[in-house]
Design a protein around this nucleic acid. Structure first.
Length: 527
DNA sequence: GTAGGGTTAG
């Protein structure tokens, strides 16, 4: 609710939005036992506010700037059930307070203290929200303290928030503080290589193949394959020979990014060095399959399976199965399963879910559902697979049925399920309901992922809400998210379709939108 | 007893 206050206001009329059957169903699914009777005041003895009502009351009090009453309302939320209020509620409290016209350091400090009093464990958004408030107040010294506290909690401040802080410190000639911020900015980017260099100069801590591999994995997981490759050559220069584990990690990253030439080079190196590939080498190719490079992936996979001989495990069979299904070779699926069992390898849930996905993508819905019902132990991924298909097809009856079924089987919607629902709503043009789902995630969890963010970005663009999409992109960081390459691509593509120059379009639109938001009192910070 | 790797859903 709070997170999306601005774009919602762009999209919606002032009247309250409708709650569909589906919305109430999944909200009750995500917080099944949170509704309890509670007296709010003596005059209101017969009224029993639920969690949503308590939260809304707390938010309104915080927005009006009455910090004492807002904190009382926040504490009252404890009566709404175990685990309440959540850290999301707490972040919402702080965010609402920042929207009031009475923001002062004393109150902000009282709010910070409340976190430890109630034993709440902060998340990255908690710190980003406080930093936003301190930025608003121009309190750079305290902002630096909060940033260090954020690092102590093992969260990483964004580069731009550090950059902003650095500017503030430099402007006020706080040289010592500016150097501290600069130091923090340099851990973000140079920590790993500095650490390696320091280790290399000290014989006692000389980095090993495993040390390098650990860091290479970190780079790969963050999509920084080029850095990973340069680290690979650095370790070789230092006389450390990468082994199959190192190569598998790099191969997986290359495969995920569809870097075919580099994959061939890597295989050439592996074979030249006479390092035999293993099961992990085979499964590292799944990214290539997902990118549609079926012929190359299958040929490499075949070679590996021949080399591995009888050592292949269930994961390799699953990737092989993925190949068959991607090539629509359903008739060969049962013989593969038979081969697995003959070798004493029992198919697992991943095997069945891979087949289910195949049914969902290339068979009529009733056949997919039939296969789903035949599963002995469907897990959350099975449910999400069928839910995703129903959502993509815009089949509301099926969506309802799957959600009801999940509830009956004791499964709660996770971030993937919620994202599927957002996709459904944006596909059928119900962008307000899509926003409702997103607001629900922000307020009550589960925490949205970058896939969720991009699904929303896609939904906004698809429904012609470019202004909201630009606003959303430009404000992501303030709320603890960093746009990835896909986020930008979605906007770029939309601009191309409309024959617009993305740079000018974004720039001009943003200026006018921000001006309008400031005029209307929606935006209180940054610019 | 001690460091690093994979396959299914958004």
């Amino acid at each position: 609710m709070i997170f999306f206050a601005v774009p919602s206001s762009i999209l919606r009329p002032k009247s309250t939005c409708k709650r569909t059957y589906l919305m109430s169903q999944f909200i009750s699914l995500s917080s099944p036992s949170s509704v309890q009777s509670l007296d709010m005041s003596e005059e209101n003895n017969h009224h029993c506010p639920d969690y949503t009502e308590l939260r809304s009351n707390m938010q309104n009090l915080a927005k009006s700037g009455g910090i004492t009453k807002a904190l009382q309302a926040f504490r009252l939320m404890r009566t709404a059930g175990p685990g309440k209020p959540t850290v999301y509620d707490y972040n919402s409290l702080v965010n609402c307070y920042l929207k009031s016209e009475n923001v002062c350091l004393h109150d902000l400090s009282a709010l910070y203290t409340e976190m430890s009093t109630l034993g709440l464990y902060p998340n990255a958004s908690t710190f980003n929200t406080f930093l936003k408030g301190l930025n608003l107040l121009g309190e750079s010294k305290i902002a630096l303290w909060v940033t260090i506290e954020m690092c102590n909690y093992a969260f990483t401040p964004s580069f731009s928030s550090l950059s902003n802080l650095l500017k503030k410190c430099s402007d006020s000639m706080d040289l010592e503080e500016a150097i501290t911020v600069l130091d923090l900015m340099m851990g973000l980017f140079k920590e790993a290589s500095n650490c390696l260099n320091k280790m290399a100069t000290d014989a006692c801590y000389y980095p090993t193949v495993r040390t390098y591999t650990t860091i290479i994995k970190c780079w790969c997981d963050n999509g920084r394959v080029q850095e990973a490759l340069s680290l690979l050559s650095q370790m070789e220069k230092r006389g450390l020979n990468p082994d199959i584990v190192t190569y598998n990690i790099i191969l997986r990253a290359l495969s995920n990014q569809n870097m075919v030439d580099e994959i061939f080079d890597l295989f050439q190196t592996i074979y030249q060095k006479d390092i035999p590939p293993d099961c992990y080498t085979a499964t590292a190719l799944s990214g290539l399959l997902k990118k549609g490079n079926l012929v190359i992936a299958r040929s490499l996979l075949r070679d590996i399976i021949v080399t591995c001989g009888s050592d292949i495990d269930v994961a390799v069979y699953n990737v092989d199965l993925y190949c068959l299904i991607s090539c629509f070779k359903f008739k060969e699926v049962s013989s593969l399963i038979k081969r697995m069992r003959k070798k004493g390898i029992e198919p697992n849930n991943i095997t069945f879910n891979t087949i289910l996905k195949g049914f969902c993508e290339s068979k009529p819905m009733d056949e997919a559902l039939e296969y789903f019902k035949s599963l002995k132990n469907p897990d959350l991924v099975s449910f999400n697979t069928i839910l995703s298909t129903a959502c993509k097809k815009g089949d509301i009856q099926m969506v309802k049925m799957v959600i009801d079924l999940m509830g009956n089987e004791g499964f709660e919607l996770n971030v993937v399920g919620f994202t599927c629902l957002m996709v459904y709503y944006s596909n059928v043009g119900e962008i307000n309901d899509c926003l409702d789902v997103f607001e629900h995630m922000i307020s009550c969890g589960p925490t949205p992922s970058m896939v969720t963010i991009n699904a929303l970005m896609f939904g906004l663009c698809k429904n012609g809400e470019l202004e909201a999409a630009y606003w959303f992109l430009c404000n992501l960081e303030s709320f603890g998210f960093l746009p990835d390459s896909r986020t930008y691509k979605i906007l770029e593509r939309k601009c191309k379709v409309e024959g617009l120059n993305p740079d000018n379009r974004i720039k001009n639109r943003m200026i006018s939108i921000l001006k309008e938001m400031i005029t209307n009192g929606h935006l209180h910070y940054g610019s």
